[in-house]
Design a protein around this nucleic acid. Structure first.
Length: 260
DNA sequence: TAGCATACATAAGT
DNA sequence: CACTTATGTATGCT
């Protein structure tokens, strides 16, 4: 149970087949340098603020990454959320997988506009009303991306043992043409994408996984068709001892008039 | 080495 | 009926 911690270069492990460092200050890492392009604050673009974005691309994968909050801002937001948020308990904190019931290895909460619901592994959750801090973060994301979101799924990982298995966010109630905006607060965690055709034993395709570090105060935009082509996961990292709160802002289609 | 990371087999319901 | 997501186990890496 106890950690032996002692920081032995946690960051380096992401570079497995290492090459000479061409850009030592990169805040995120991918398998190849080609996947990441600097897009330093082109304010003439569709984004309203000159934040340095990084583009992460692979076959069918399209993400934008930026540091949205300073460390001080992020730490404050984290503490405010720790006081404000109420996480699911009881049955709402369990998942039924293949007939077996498991406790979710993390904590979850759902907030959003009135009337929005979200179904995850057969369990429907109702969005609680936005809290002040969530509104702040949501508005910052909207101002930065030009996108409006009506829902946020929050996952809290108390340490590196809390995790999330490989999955796609491709629920039917999600607008497939809308990006998902993922805000990270607290401990840095590894984040792994795997192409859907590169899973399992007998997949002919050898598409390398894309590995990122999601830092305190960062925003990761997952643009279509990333979420249908790639699975993602937040793997166990036993050396991580601090908590992380992740907020994934989404657009949920209102299910008033479902198509038969 | 011991411990960690990763890949895969596996569970039964929709 | 293809797909689901967490756990357990095997194996490789450092």
């Amino acid at each position: 149970m106890m950690e032996k911690l002692v920081g032995r270069g946690q960051k380096k492990r992401l570079h497995s087949n290492d090459e000479p460092r061409r850009s030592p200050r990169k805040k995120i890492k991918a398998e190849t340098d080609e996947m990441i392009k600097e897009e330093d604050g082109d304010a003439s673009g569709e984004f309203s603020r000159p934040i340095p974005w990084k583009k992460i691309e692979a076959e069918g994968l399209d993400c934008d990454y930026a540091l949205l909050f300073s460390k001080e801002e992020a730490d404050t937001l984290f503490q405010q959320l720790e006081e404000e948020l109420v996480y699911s308990t009881g049955e709402q904190a369990q998942v039924q997988v293949f007939g077996k019931v498991y406790n979710i290895p993390r904590k979850q909460a759902t907030y959003g506009d009135a009337g929005v619901t979200y179904t995850y592994s057969g369990v429907t959750r109702v969005a609680s009303p936005w809290t002040p801090t969530l509104r702040n973060i949501r508005d910052k994301v909207t101002n930065t991306t030009g996108r409006i979101f009506n829902f946020v799924l929050i996952n809290r990982y108390k340490d590196g043992r809390d995790h999330m298995g490989e999955h796609r966010d491709d629920e039917r109630e999600l607008d497939p043409l809308w990006p998902i905006a993922s805000v990270s607060l607290g401990a840095t965690r590894d984040f792994i994408f795997r192409h859907r055709d590169a899973r399992g034993k007998q997949s002919n395709r050898r598409i390398q996984p894309v590995k990122l570090e999601l830092a305190n105060g960062s925003l990761l935009l997952m643009n279509p068709p990333t979420n249908s082509m790639w699975y993602h996961s937040l793997p166990i990292r036993k050396k991580v001892i601090r908590p992380r709160i992740n907020l994934t802002f989404r657009r949920i289609k209102l299910i008033n008039e479902p198509k038969s």
